[in-house]
Design a binder for these strands. Structure first.
Lengths: 332, 332
DNA sequence: GGGGCGTTTGGAATCGATTCCAAAAGCTTG
DNA sequence: CAAGCTTTTGGAATCGATTCCAAACGCCCC
């Protein structure tokens, strides 16, 4: 039994295709009796309108796509919950696809916006150059989340990474730290901003970075351990380490502890994101809370505006407030 | 400037729409000169074939959808990498959508298969009743992953959860444990199988479960802590705890340690999944490794077969081999 | 130069749902 | 009961890409 079409339903119900379509779309211009006959036929044939035919005619899909490098990051999955909930409330389905850091895969997925497979795109952490993001965003419905390109043409939602890094570094200095090191991620736009904030806080206090290390590949637990080993092997042991993520900070803490040193007495460690990792770590991590869920909601709001109001074109960058969360990894 | 169509390209290139389409689809029956003219026009107009029109005509989308309750689980994201890579190799785009445990959301997403928005579906952890899974799978292209319904009509890929739980419980008993407790998740099919395996290993050894606790809501770090507190408050302190996931085990270890007891000397703890949490925990967790990536690949393979070979209909359940990984949380 | 072959091309029909227009049906009121 | 509404209906046109069929073209060889 092949798929039933609107024609089949019309025949079974004894009405025209127009009437069937009107029932499907809740048009008021249908008599109760027709509505009933059509509903019966739909049930009998187990009919569902074909998405591609409908999308073609309507010129929209009511679907959006969120692109992320991977799904493991707690901030990403939380932000996506925000996108998804907001989307659902507006009748959109939101889908996610990981690029796995492959430009080809990314291109293929961005093409889904270009070819109308989806109506809008949320970019989480593209490997795409800023120029490409800009070019895409000027023509189509795109919003950036967390990682925002330096561009006047595109729009993005994030926290003020620079300020947040400055805040947490100031806190470290406030607890008495003088030889501060950082473990960062220059591959990410946010990582570069956090580095800036770190350096600004230092020079404010008349200090210089003891060491700055940057991950080459992944920015994960193992990278945190590896880089911390380097840190400890060097001459001047830092008395505080600012890490670009909680997961990396957890690796850092682990390596320090394994080396027989105490956190925070010998070395204080700060994380970033306030993910569950921050609480799983012993001692629990001082970190920066990102309002990820809210960021997702706001991002979808902007995307919806872009999709439905062709005139409006929001630009630039919107900051949501972050929060310094102080826990045992830095108490003095 | 509205979207360019195949007609526009044809006009600009000075050929017919048929020729444009043939170029688009790499038909050999096109002269080099036409091919070139069309390629030029496509570039000039920045043309992309509209997905809905193409899908309508071709009656397939080359897209699949993976449904999961959430994205945070490392096993899920790893399994999805496997699905995604295998799909890409066959020219499919694979998308993910979290249901957030909402049956409505789940229904909406499953409808994407019913209405032809995607060609196939990978079900990770549906809240859907077994009967519904079965009904869906008999008509459409569906494959289950990790959580597999008790049904002869549907097909699913997973490890042998019962056997794996038995293996790790035997190991606990082998290290001398006699008062074994478990923290499980009866809300998941896999959780129920793991409970079975746990009990089988116990009765094999002539033992009885000291305590068995089950999470009410989420099965996460906090649930692990909460349930372990209950465990410790009871009279007969267990000398080993089998946890249904690494994350829960991490919560368990944390609570035991905070109570001033030692892991594994006072209480041994075992996890499940061999996620990164198992390595982040101190001491590192003994656990069961699931070949998640491979499971994803295999699942897509089965789905592809189902989508492209209408005659074949694989049924039942396929087990991939698990592995007992022994670490410090249970050494004796 | 023309017959016959294979290559290339144009154009119409098609996929399935929506929507617009005109016509039919139903209702009210003088 | 007819004129004048409104409500409801049928059916054709439409969205954009693909594909099939027949026609046009090019080429070779006799």
């Amino acid at each position: 039994m092949a798929r039933a079409t609107v024609q089949d339903v019309a025949k079974t119900a004894g009405v025209s295709v127009g009437t069937v379509s009107r029932v499907l779309n809740g048009s008021p211009a249908v008599s109760a009796s027709s509505r009933e006959k059509v509903a019966g036929a739909i049930r009998e044939l187990n009919y569902r309108p074909l998405a591609s035919a409908r999308d073609l005619r309507r010129d929209r899909t009511m679907r959006i796509l969120a692109l992320a490098k991977n799904l493991e990051s707690p901030v990403i999955s939380e932000a996506f919950r925000g996108v998804g909930d907001a989307a659902a409330r507006s009748g959109y389905v939101s889908l996610i696809a990981p690029t796995a850091g492959s430009p080809d895969r990314e291109q293929q997925l961005v093409d889904m916006l270009r070819n109308g497979s989806v109506d809008g795109l949320v970019l989480f952490s593209p490997t795409m150059p800023d120029d490409d993001v800009e070019a895409l965003a000027t023509q189509l419905s795109v919003v950036q989340l967390c990682e925002v390109a330096e561009s006047e043409a595109a729009f993005g939602v994030s926290i003020d990474d620079r300020q947040a890094a400055r805040d947490i570094t100031r806190h470290l200095i406030g607890t008495g730290a003088r030889r501060l090191a950082m473990i960062g991620n220059r591959a990410a736009r946010s990582g570069r901003l956090r580095e800036q904030g770190f350096r600004e806080a230092l020079s404010e206090a008349g200090l210089e970075a003891a060491q700055s290390l940057f991950a080459a590949g992944d920015f994960d637990f193992h990278a945190g351990r590896r880089l911390t080993r380097e840190l400890l092997a060097a001459d001047n042991l830092p008395d505080a380490v600012f890490c670009g993520s909680d997961t990396v900070a957890a690796g850092c803490v682990r390596e320090i502890t394994d080396a027989g040193l105490r956190v925070p007495e010998d070395v204080a460690v700060a994380g970033f994101d306030d993910s569950i990792q921050a609480e799983m770590c012993v001692p629990e991590l001082t970190t920066i809370r990102q309002p990820a869920y809210e960021m997702g909601r706001v991002a979808f709001g902007a995307l919806l505006e872009r999709m439905t109001e062709p005139g409006v074109h929001r630009r630039g960058r919107m900051f949501l407030p972050h929060e310094l969360v102080i826990r045992d990894s830095t108490k003095n």
